[in-house]
Write a protein that binds this DNA or RNA. Structure first.
Length: 524
RNA sequence: GGCCCCGUAGCUCAAUUGGCAGAGCAGUUGACUCUUAAUCAAUUGGUUGGAGGUUCGAGUCCUCCCGGGGUCACCA
């Protein structure tokens, strides 16, 4: 009994649609109509499953030496059809679920003519989801398979996934024939990317393990995980342009947060000794291989430690996370062997810049002098940059050279409005950034807890950035009010979670560790 | 935002100095009851990202636009 194309399906296909199907999609829609005509539900609500693909294979292999026991392993498996080989009156399929793949051997004699017609005529085809009941067996050529007695369609795929064929080599490695590599389509249709590229799925599993390990470490260290507002009446804690939004009913402009800093420190006033938050920050700036408009940040604040204590925590935290995710404290990133074992290299910003650029910025204590020195050595220096900004741009020359985990410490005061002054040096503060793989990973300081000094810094920043209103650091009066109640001495720390994910998964672009990276509108 | 590169079938890619838009995979039809990148035979499929221009003739050259990648600027 064969199911053949009939005329009446035309009406089904030509009904009003919001999209333009390709020829292959038209073909699949016709098959969908024919299934409906046969009384077969293409999207049934109920499913049965006794084994994952991996469990079915394991259950068989465990008892394979005993023929009677092996024949009695009955399973119902579900998954997406990934390979079809119809060989006359027997068909071999591979179906895939979250655990992996298992082969189905579907024989006309075992499933009956009606079901086999669906297989032979490919009314059920590549990329559809199916449920199969049968007994486990090993084929003559050696593959553990399900000898199928019942086959059901679970979900019809109207659009075909990109075609990638796989071959398992003798040594167990997998060769792929065909690929889905167009970056734009992969990012825009991440679901298709994940469906056909298992290594992409693995990247995001690693990312999840990484975030889980970050939490575990901080929880075990006695930190309290908290959540603070994303919609904020005043943004702050970093120098970045914010996204602005509006609450209609309250008629109130709000900003999407650019950091968690100021809210987390309020909590230390409230007598939590140690808090952290993992969440999304939003910065209205350019996108690049290491910048996305929204990105995941982790920050912690701990009372009764200074930035030396924070460096110690950083080394232990990162070594732990890398160990948890990869099983080792050494990773390979873009061909570089990177070792996270403490202690990491520590050098002052002044030393680092002097060593890389030959510029001793302490010999140039004002913007004009430093700018001249930079230009003399061939570095760009903007006319409108402050002295602190110029120093920071020199750090940009150092950054790519910092492959091994490195702390760079003691930053200019005027680009660090929330850090405590370095004793004996009013021009510098107790702040460090740490770098790995040539990227800035995070930022930390001995937190400023003197409300009058903090107020002065806010006012100073307002003056320094007056010309660039976009980046002005607004004065947060409520934050100052909190600080006036008394804030314990504390160390604070923040890290770009996406960038750590890049390191641990050896990805060169932040877009490859974001499931749905930001893209422009698809159509004008 | 500046500069450079790219955009051809569902996917991956060809197309000579500007000269008939092609291949593999998938799809369709047929053969095959232990295959596995199955194989064999036949076959469908295109507004070459979009709009203009040059030319007898444009995938190819020019201009603009859209999208992507890279890089610089920006990003405490």
């Amino acid at each position: 009994m064969r199911v053949r194309t009939t005329d009446h399906v035309e009406g089904e296909v030509s009904r009003e649609m919001s999209w333009e199907p390709t020829n292959v999609e038209r073909d699949r829609l016709e098959k969908l109509a024919r299934l409906t005509e046969l009384g077969i539900e293409a999207y049934p609500p109920r499913v049965e499953r006794t084994h994952t693909a991996a469990q079915a294979i394991a259950a068989f292999e465990a008892v394979e030496d005993d023929p009677e026991a092996a024949e009695s392993i009955e399973v119902t498996v579900c998954g997406r059809v990934r390979r079809i080989n119809i060989k006359g009156k027997v068909a071999f399929w591979h179906i895939e679920d979250g655990s992996g793949r298992v082969q189905l051997m579907i024989r006309l004699d075992n499933v009956g003519e009606a079901t086999y017609a669906l297989v032979q005529d490919k009314l059920i085809e590549l990329d559809d989801f199916v449920q199969a009941r049968g007994v486990m067996m090993r084929t003559r050529s050696g593959e553990v398979s399900v000898q199928v007695y019942e086959l059901r369609l679970l979900a019809k795929a109207v659009s075909p996934l990109p075609v990638i064929k796989e071959k398992v080599e003798e040594d167990g490695t997998i060769s792929r024939f065909g690929e889905f590599s167009d970056k734009e389509t992969r990012y825009r249709q991440r679901y298709a990317d994940l469906a056909v590229n298992p290594d992409v799925r693995e990247v995001f599993r690693k990312r999840a393990r990484m975030i889980s390990a970050l939490r575990r470490f901080l929880d075990d260290e006695g930190f309290l995980e908290v959540e603070t507002p994303i919609l904020q009446p005043i943004y702050g804690g970093a120098a970045a342009r914010p996204f602005i939004t509006h609450h209609n009913q309250l008629d109130q402009d709000l900003y999407l947060r650019i950091s968690f800093e100021l809210y987390l420190k309020r909590l230390l006033v409230g007598m939590y000794d140690a808090v952290y938050e993992i969440g999304r920050d939003f910065r209205n700036e350019g996108v690049s291989f290491k910048h996305n408009p929204e990105f995941t940040q982790i920050e912690f604040y701990k009372a009764y430690i200074d930035y030396h204590g924070v460096m110690d925590l950083t080394e232990r935290l990162l070594a732990f996370v890398v160990q948890q995710v990869t099983g080792d404290t050494v990773i390979t990133y873009q061909g570089h062997r990177i070792d996270f074992r403490p202690p990491w290299k520590r050098l002052t910003l002044h030393e680092a810049i002097l060593a890389t650029t030959g510029i001793d910025y302490k010999q140039h204590p004002d913007a004009a002098s430093l700018r001249a020195a930079m230009r003399q050595r061939g570095y760009q220096a903007r006319d409108d940059a402050t002295w602190g900004k110029l120093v920071d741009s020199l750090l940009g020359e150092v950054e790519p050279t910092l492959i091994q985990p490195t702390f760079i410490l003691d930053y200019p005061r005027d680009i660090s409005p929330f850090a405590k002054m370095l004793p004996g040096d009013p021009t510098h503060v107790e702040r460090f950034e740490f770098f790995i793989g040539g990227m800035e990973m995070g930022n930390a300081f001995t937190e400023l807890n003197d409300p009058q000094d903090q107020e002065a810094r806010f006012l100073e920043m307002g003056r320094l950035y007056a010309e660039d209103q976009d980046e002005a650091t607004p004065l947060d009066e409520d934050y100052l009010r909190a600080m006036r109640y008394g804030m314990p001495p504390c160390g604070g720390w923040g890290m770009g979670v996406d960038r750590l994910a890049m390191l641990l998964t050896d990805q060169r672009s932040i877009r490859d560790v974001l499931l749905f990276p930001h893209m422009r509108d698809e159509e004008a």
